[in-house]
Structure formats: C-alpha cells, structure tokens
Computed example of a mutant assay.
Amino acid sequence: MSRIRTEPLHLDELIAAVSHPGAGGIATFLGVVRDVNDGRSVTLLEYEAYGTMAEAELERILWEIAAELPGVLVAATHRVGALHVGDVAVACAASAPHRAEAFRGCRLLIDRVKERLPIWKREHGPDGPYWVGWEDARCAGEHGHEAPHGHTHGDKEPHGHGGTAPPTNAGA
C-alpha cells in the first residue's frame, strides 16, 4: 500500500495492509508537524509533490525493501497540502515474523521516503514562508555570503526566507 494524498492519514490503514498471520511484529512510524525547526517557530507546513512520480517512487521503495528483507511487508502514505502543528505528514508500517526485522523495515522505509520522494516542504513562521532543504545551483559551494536567497546550503544552514515555487530537485 502506498499513497500520496491530501486527506488525513490513518495508521490503522497501514497496519491492516501489513498484517498477516505470520507477522509476529509490526513497527510503525508517524512523522508529525512540530512547532519549531532549526530554532525557528513553525505555524504551518505546506507539502507539494509531483504526484504520479511520487507514487511510482514510493512503490519502488516498497518493492526494494520487500526484496531486501524477505518476509517483511511495508506500507506508507504521505500527505500533501497545508498541515498544522500536530498533523501527521507521513505514516509508515512494517511487519515481519520478528520485531528486529519489522523495526529495520520501518526504518529503511522512512529513510528512503525522506531521501527519494519528489515532495517539497515549505515552512511558515513569523518571518514568512520558506522552502526547506533545497540548494540553489547558483550558490552551490558558497558559504558565508550576506545576501538572503531563500534556500538551504548542503550544510543545512538556513539562508533567507524566500521561495515562491518548489525547487526542481527532490527531497522530503
């Protein structure tokens, strides 16, 4: 089961998708909108996705993990749109005959979702909205410059607060 959707996420759907008589353990993960990120107050998150590409990539991730970890079933959903503090943004579940494999499957799943899905996050706070985790190619390799230009460098140090459209590179 994989889905990118605007509706609220429900963990029970994922648990049902991975449950089976041989599952001795089910591990779950919920990614929830928090009120502070990197020392900045957060009042709202907006997630945007390339929907069909994100669904296809999520499906690939699920198949990869199933192939790597025989006996492990995984499922995930990711929400897009405007989310408030406390809302669930991503939900993952993994089942396996034993707990260690279930935990490993769930960890691999969320790590790959964060790394590979073409979903972009825009945080809103007192200083206005800003895109999280993208690097402007015009500034790659620069550090310590003065002009804000609305992105984060590879060192994850925030610069500026601008950004009016999602970046062209992927990142969750």
Rank of each mutant, 00 (worst) to 15 (best):
D35T: 04
D38I: 05
R40D: 15
S41Y: 00
T43G: 12
L44A: 12
L44Q: 14
L44R: 15
L44D: 09
L45K: 06
Y47M: 02
A49W: 06
Y50H: 14
Y50W: 13
T52E: 15
M53F: 11
A54K: 01
E55H: 11
A56W: 06
A56G: 03
A56C: 02
L58A: 09
L58H: 04
E59S: 15
E59P: 00
R60N: 12
R60G: 07
R60F: 07
I61T: 03
L62P: 00
E64Q: 14
A66E: 15
L69T: 10
L69C: 02
P70L: 06
L73P: 07
L73Y: 12
V74R: 07
A75T: 00
A75M: 07
A76N: 06
T77I: 10
R79L: 03
R79H: 04
V80I: 15
G81Y: 12
G81C: 09
G81H: 12
A82W: 11
L83G: 05
L83H: 04
G86K: 05
G86D: 07
G86C: 01
D87H: 01
D87F: 01
V88G: 00
V88K: 14
V88A: 15
A89T: 08
V90G: 03
V90M: 05
C92V: 00
P97N: 07
P97E: 12
P97L: 03
H98S: 10
H98M: 01
R99Y: 05
R99V: 00
A100I: 13
A100R: 15
E101P: 02
A102M: 08
A102V: 06
A102H: 07
F103I: 06
F103T: 11
F103L: 13
C106G: 02
L109P: 08
L109K: 05
I110V: 14
D111P: 06
K114I: 08
R116E: 10
P118L: 03
P118F: 05
K121T: 13
R122D: 01
E123M: 06
E123V: 04
H124V: 02
H124E: 10
G125E: 09
G125Q: 02
P129E: 13
P129A: 15
P129S: 14
Y130M: 15
W131M: 01
W134V: 06
W134S: 10
C139L: 14
G141N: 01
E142Y: 09
H143M: 12
H143T: 14
G144T: 00
G144P: 08
G144M: 04
A147L: 13
P148Y: 09
H149N: 08
H149I: 02
H149W: 03
H149R: 11
G150I: 04
G150H: 00
G150C: 06
H151V: 04
T152P: 00
T152R: 13
H153S: 09
G154W: 11
G154S: 14
